[in-house]
Design a protein around this nucleic acid. Sequence first.
DNA 1: GTTCCACTTGGCACTTTGTGCCATCTGGGA
DNA 2: TCCCAGATGGCACAAAGTGCCAAGTGGAAC
Lengths: 236, 236
Amino acid sequence: MIRATTASGMRRTPAGTASPMTASPPAPSSAPAGRRTLRERKKERTYEHTARVAVRLIMRHGLAAVRVEDICEHAEIGRSTFFRYFDSKEHCFVAGVNLGHLKAVLAALDARPADEGPLTALCNAFLAIQEDWRRQRDILLLDARLRAEVPAVQAHTSATHLEWETRLAEAIAPRFPGTPDENQLQARILASGVLCAVRLANESWIASGATESPIPSLTAAFTVLRSLMTDHADNG
Amino acid sequence: MIRATTASGMRRTPAGTASPMTASPPAPSSAPAGRRTLRERKKERTYEHTARVAVRLIMRHGLAAVRVEDICEHAEIGRSTFFRYFDSKEHCFVAGVNLGHLKAVLAALDARPADEGPLTALCNAFLAIQEDWRRQRDILLLDARLRAEVPAVQAHTSATHLEWETRLAEAIAPRFPGTPDENQLQARILASGVLCAVRLANESWIASGATESPIPSLTAAFTVLRSLMTDHADNG
DNA sequence: GTTCCACTTGGCACTTTGTGCCATCTGGGA
DNA sequence: TCCCAGATGGCACAAAGTGCCAAGTGGAAC
């Protein structure tokens, strides 16, 4: 009635790597700190190419009409390989939509002067990459629609945002006074607030048709965020 | 090669209700504001019962070993019915784990004095329900493990938290000065911060074996949150 | 350059999932 | 009491996932 578990549902991924779980390329199997091996670059290429193909197909035909097999054909990989990288069509799509976004924010954050406080630096980093987002308008529009219609898309997107939270927290932790690991909590909470503001700004940008630049919405949201943080959130 | 879409992937739910999308009972089909109809109560019973059965089975046998069909047999519903309520095993499990949690926080929040500020009230509401959580220790432990191992569980959990954010924001908005819809942004961001703190506290509670009360972790996280909000997050 | 090994890939078979469709049942209102 | 919208369950079928194995390929050692 209840079948015995074969290997207990552990996901198989290339190189026995820990499963990606979100929209990120598979972790390097044995990164020697410095140079990335050809194998790794190839894997990343496959990952990104497949995700991009998925987005393209889904843009053209709709999520429901595209089968995993279609994606595999167009990306020229085997079905087995697909499932080694993604655990579903939806996962693949979300990965494709967010390809490079995290990397871009991290880079923008790195480019901020070291004496900028964590909140300011993070906000400025997001502002700096808005042009990229505006350019992706069509994809983001589709993404918003699918998030509203397909639970799995929403779910994977939320998971992706959670990963962003942890990665951004790591990145801004050094900007707090004190040692980085003392600051982990503060950094996480701050990152969460900023991400929430970004999400809301994006929602309102999308809701308004996404014709103008997303920067005004974003600036407005950041202003609210900043006033929350500096004024006082409370009287209790 | 790419097949035509039948009805474009729209999910079918009982009564043409909007899809739940997260771990919440199906929305009332035609709530006459006051009394809930027997039909509605029956639907909620089915939803909750099924989710509970799923959690029980998965606790006993593991996620991988339990099939949707097993859940259906034990819950005494048809497979069709299952998929009208949940879109996967994982969704069902996450729903079961979080059953009533949101309702409990909202109730606790309602019980806070009206003159408490939004931050304080929300923190206190979470503190008030910790005993419930401690009692669910075993379920939460399993949940944490599955979240780490199974992407879909993590994904649905994140989506659930996102829903909490919006619901809690609505609930605390009136506690801000000004009109509720002016405060929607502030409320969302504040809720996001509190939820982040709660998540982190829970993580550390779980990581420590979840033997003690979860309250110390939570208090610590709230202290950090409050200092972030009152002191100053930044110098920029 | 050759050889070897670890890792990745693709193909195949098989189970489980997810959906459409329809007949049946049931609660709620007239 | 009758009627109907909505909920359910069964069945059939396409698609998704997973395990297994044989074949290719990069990396490192010699």
